[in-house]
C-alpha cells in the first residue's frame, strides 16, 4: 500500500483550478499527477480530480466539449472499474454532460456570477469520497460560478431520491436556484462525486476555511484504498 497515493488531475484547455487542486492534494498526503486532456490512457493513478475552470471556453454548453476528450473516455473507464472520481465545478459540469452523474448545470437563476463562501449540509457520509465528514455536518466552502444551477426533471429527481444520490445541499440561501438546493451528487455506486463548491480553495484555515480538506482527504483515503484493492487482485 503506497504512503502517498497518486491522484490524476485532468487539465483541459481552459481549466484554471488544476494547480490549486494539485497543491491541495499534495498538502493532504497524495502525489498529484497532471493528466493532459489529449492523453488516451491514464497514467498509473488511483484517483481522479476533474478541476474547475472553463474547459474549451464553455463552448456549446459547459462541459459538453470536454466530455468528448480522449482523457474523459479513459476517466469513464476508470470510474466504471470503481475508481474514485471527484469533479469540482466545471468538473461537475463535465461529469453531468458525460452522463456519469444525473442532471445538468444551468445558468444561475440570479443571472449573476456568484463568488463567496457558502454553508453546506452533508447529506451522505457512507460513500468513500465523504468518509471524513459527519452526516448533518455544516461545511463552509467557497463557490465561484455562473452556471451552477443543478437541474433534473421531476421523474429524474425521484430516481435521484430513491438512489439517495444527493451528497451536499446548500444550507440556508440557495445561491444559484438548483433543484432541492443540491450542491453535490454522486453516482448510484458512490465512487463518482460532483460538486459546485471548491474544496481545493478551503484546505487551510488561513484562507478562511479548512473544511474542503475533509472532502479532499476523503478522496486521498479512497485512492489509497482503491490502490490497495487493485494490488490485491494482481
Amino acid at each position: 500500500m503506497t504512503e502517498r497515493p497518486r491522484i490524476g488531475v485532468v487539465v483541459f484547455p481552459g481549466s484554471n483550478d488544476d494547480r490549486d487542486a494539485a497543491w491541495a492534494l499534495g498538502a493532504l498526503g497524495a502525489e498529484p499527477v497532471v493528466v493532459w486532456h489529449a492523453d488516451e490512457q491514464l497514467p498509473d493513478v488511483a484517483g481522479i480530480v476533474l478541476p474547475g475552470g472553463f474547459s474549451y471556453g464553455d463552448y456549446l454548453r459547459c462541459g459538453a466539449i470536454a466530455r468528448l476528450s480522449p482523457a474523459m473516455r479513459a476517466v469513464a473507464e476508470f470510474a466504471a472499474e470503481g475508481g474514485p472520481v471527484l469533479g469540482i465545478c466545471n468538473g461537475f459540469q463535465i461529469l453531468c454532460e458525460a452522463r456519469l452523474l444525473p442532471g445538468v448545470l444551468r445558468p444561475n437563476a440570479s443571472r449573476r456570477f456568484v463568488c463567496r463562501d457558502v454553508a453546506l449540509r452533508v447529506e451522505r457520509t457512507d460513500i468513500p469520497l465523504m468518509s471524513r465528514c459527519l452526516t448533518g455536518q455544516r461545511l463552509v466552502i467557497p463557490i465561484k460560478h455562473g452556471e451552477g444551477c443543478w437541474f433534473v426533471d421531476e421523474a429524474a429527481l425521484e430516481r435521484v431520491a430513491e438512489l439517495d444520490q444527493v451528497v451536499l445541499r446548500y444550507d440556508g440561501k440557495n445561491p444559484n436556484g438548483s433543484v432541492g438546493g443540491v450542491a453535490g451528487v454522486c453516482n448510484p455506486e458512490g465512487n463518482v462525486l460532483g460538486l459546485m463548491p471548491h474544496p481545493e480553495h478551503a484546505v487551510d484555515p488561513l484562507l478562511g476555511s479548512g473544511d474542503g480538506a475533509l472532502i479532499l482527504a476523503s478522496l486521498v483515503d479512497a485512492a489509497r484504498e482503491h490502490h490497495g484493492s487493485l494490488a490485491a487482485t494482481l
Partner: peptide, 10 residues
Amino acid sequence: GILDPQGQAV
C-alpha cells in the same frame, strides 16, 4: 418550463 435566465435578460 425550463428557466432561461438569458431569455429573461433579453
